[in-house]
Amino acid sequence: MKFLSQLISGISLGSIYSLIALGYTMVYGIAKMLNFAHGDVIMIGGYVVYTACVTAGLPAAAGVLIAIVFCTVLGVAIERFAYKPLRSASSLAVLITAIGVSYLLQNVALLIFGSDTKSFSSVVSLEPVSLADGALVISGETIVTIIVSVIIMVALIVFINKTRPGKAMLAVSEDKGAAQLMGINVNGTIALTFAIGSGLAAVAGALLCSAYPALSPYTGAMPGIKAFVAAVFGGIGSIPGAMIGGILLGIIENLSKGYISSQLSDPIVFAVLIIVLLVKPTGLMGKKINEKV
């Protein structure tokens, strides 16, 4: 029973990682950049929910909705002002700019909300479910996280494969130049990708802070790095890869916390990543690109 409950909370944590990793992987696929500021968008999402629900006293659903809208606008604004001028620059220049944006978001949050940790009230009001005569208790947050993540992932897959903007995203990530020649608005598509990624980050922020109710300006950093690892784990640029990578990472982390040592869970996660990459250098679902001379 302990194994099952660890597994379920691992899947729940993993689905949060997946939501964040999707933002990483979509942006990487389309703009070929590592968006280091993505983790901090989660933190901003958490603060918006906190402000709306705790300070302003709005219902939880409204708070989450406001956070999604806010983060979407924020993501597009970051792309417009920080990354767009660097579209043709080297990837390292964009990476450093992303780090700058990450510092900026953290310090804006620090100025507005202070460095003290805020206790976050859960956006989920579901009672814990008790199975097998109380041997297995699943919290409401876990259930809601898993359900919400599954819905979002299915919706995202349908959106990308069935709708025109989604197909445009696929085309741009395949070949930017050719997509432009086919009449696709490349800049618009990249902005849309950032919008979706940041919206997902807001949802992930609300879920993460509900499950682990402590909010500080540095809340987003570690989940951001973990999700980045998850995206690479699944093969960066691949959307199903990010989903599977995130969930696997969550399971590995929770099981090693439960059975080996809570302090060693991070090294174990990173070691698994290294081993996977050594066996399969482009991640689980990554495409192998042959180099031409």
Partner: peptide, 17 residues
């Protein structure tokens, strides 16, 4: 905050198209 802004502006001025 100033450090972050300096960093972003420097990167854009150095590398922006």
């Amino acid at each position: 905050l100033i450090y972050a802004i300096v960093l972003i502006v420097m990167m854009i001025v150095n590398n922006g198209s």
